[in-house]
């Protein structure tokens, strides 16, 4: 067992343990804590696979953004000191069944993939720091339609518009959703009280 597979085992076990603990614990904020462990270890797995950008995005969006908002929401809305979610035995059985079914589907899919040995990281020119996890420039170029992993000289049809347009559409869509949510939240608060604010 070399160092990389040892680290992989550690982080994979942490991910699984965190995920199980999220389901097993009943306090919402404890769930959030275990989710931090789970998502942080997933980010570490991405870093191990030399996918720095995805790992950092995982940390920034899920741990730094979504989870903070979750705990913030719990703190603002909780009536008691520690908000708990009780699950009835029926819910546990149903949830377990659905989970097992999903596990089966994932396992079946993974079994049907022809796994190729990992491609070696591009050899770095001497004296260029930061080539180890060099995913950023290929990512940016494929956004513009230049796929570095394809043979670009073969046929020029592959130089397409890239993913920039879909990405922009999705982000504008998200902005619309945000503004809509803010509008709905404001309208609800205003309507019952006609008292002028000072």
């Amino acid at each position: 067992m070399n160092g990389e597979s040892f680290l992989f085992t550690v982080f994979a076990l942490l991910t699984c343990f965190g995920a199980i603990a999220v389901v097993a614990s009943q306090t919402v904020v404890r769930m959030a804590f275990w989710l931090v462990i789970c998502l942080g270890s997933t980010a570490a797995l991405f870093f191990l696979a030399n996918a720095d950008f995805v790992g950092a995005a995982q940390l920034l969006i899920y741990v730094g953004g979504t989870l903070v908002l979750l705990v913030f929401g719990v703190m603002l809305t909780a009536s008691g000191p520690y908000l708990k979610i009780e699950t009835s035995p029926g819910e546990t059985v149903m949830g377990g069944l659905v989970g097992l079914l999903f596990l089966f589907v994932v396992f079946a899919c993974l079994n049907n993939v022809e796994w190729r040995p990992p491609v070696a990281v591009t050899a770095s020119a001497p004296g260029t720091p930061g080539v180890a996890g060099n995913t950023l420039r290929p990512l940016g170029l494929s956004f513009l339609g230049l796929r570095t992993d394809h043979d670009l000289t073969a046929d020029k049809d592959q130089a397409s518009t890239g993913y920039l347009l879909p990405f922009e559409i999705v982000s504008v869509h998200l902005l619309v959703v945000l503004i809509g949510a803010a509008y709905l939240a404001r309208a609800k608060r205003r309507s019952p009280s006609p008292v002028p604010s000072e």
Binding site: V36, G40, G65
Partner: peptide, 18 residues
């Protein structure tokens, strides 16, 4: 020496608040 070092450092610093 990460290629997206600034992104990583901002992501890690945002965890402190949690």
């Amino acid at each position: 020496a990460a290629d997206c070092g600034l992104f990583i450092i901002l992501a890690i610093l945002s965890l402190e608040v949690f």
